[in-house]
Amino acid sequence: MSEPGDLGDIVRPYADPPPGHVSDSRLERVLRSGRFAVTAELNPPDSADPSDVFDAARPLGEVADALNATDASGANCHMSSIGICALLTRAGYGTVYQISCRDRNRIAIQGDVLGAAAMGVRNVLCLTGDGVGTGDQPGARPVFDFDSISLVRTIRTMRDEGVFLSGRKITRPPRMFIGAAENPCIEPREWRPERLAKKVEAGADFIQTNYIFDLPVFEKFMARVRDLGLHERVFILPGVGPLASAKAARWMRSNVPGIHIPDAVIERMEKAAKPAEEGKRICIELIQQIRDVAGVAGVHVMAYRREHQVSEIILESGVLAGRRPRRRVVGQAQ
């Protein structure tokens, strides 16, 4: 049997959060200190080899404060979010454990939250999840025991009250920085800020949004968010990402749920001589414009199959100006 002290070599010791914080998450520290935060989405491997996880993380780790490990996004089966987070956390990355309500019921989810916290995961993103019909196994049974908002409230109850939803006591509560998603450019647009208010009320600490390609729509959304005073109660990280080509953009728009790309953006991609470069250019411009919108705390980069561009995009956008360059994390599987 190993002594408790030995555990420090294997996992992060279970520390209480610093004063004024709800977790000892790096992302939370960055956000609360007022620095512009960057999170990036990691493309989960279809493999059981840990080195594939570290390969996927390497191009993102340089600029991102935390990496989001998606939970079977689009209802397609990949390596689990909790597995990826456990590996990356041990290698020193900040991770965001994504939970979709589609695949697991309340018993599984609450247990997994404790498991993730024990593995050192400090951020969690609560999602409803796409329907099973969009994925590679449409015959699966959709669960949806929780919705994203009741999930946020459940994890907050576990963290702050130290009990499961059943009222049973948790001896060491999961000190998680709780996130939720929002999709400002999708209908019903007039009610999106109101629903965000519900997420904040439920207990969300930070918000990552789906892709923002339509700045005027996003600005209108943020104006209402500021009217409701939500930007002072929650950290908002709008989602951005480089498009690969006009064709890919069109495909995304019609096949991936919840994506809104204005025609003007697709036209610009169409006219470009080097579409991939243009996609990157558009992404950088969007990040710079989004940064200047009042109430924005950071940016969430989702560069599916364009992970190699993420570092350049973030560095060229200049949003990290004045921040100490991140120490390269090793994370090289032997």
Binding site: C101, R102, T128, G129, D130, G131, P142, F144, D147, S148, I149, S150, A181, E182, N183, I186, E187, P188, W191, R195, K198, A202, N210, P257, G258, H260
Partner: peptide
Amino acid sequence: CPKQLRNGPCGGVRPGG
């Protein structure tokens, strides 16, 4: 709601609602 949300809508609503 096919996802039986109690606090909707989700982020997948199609154009036209």
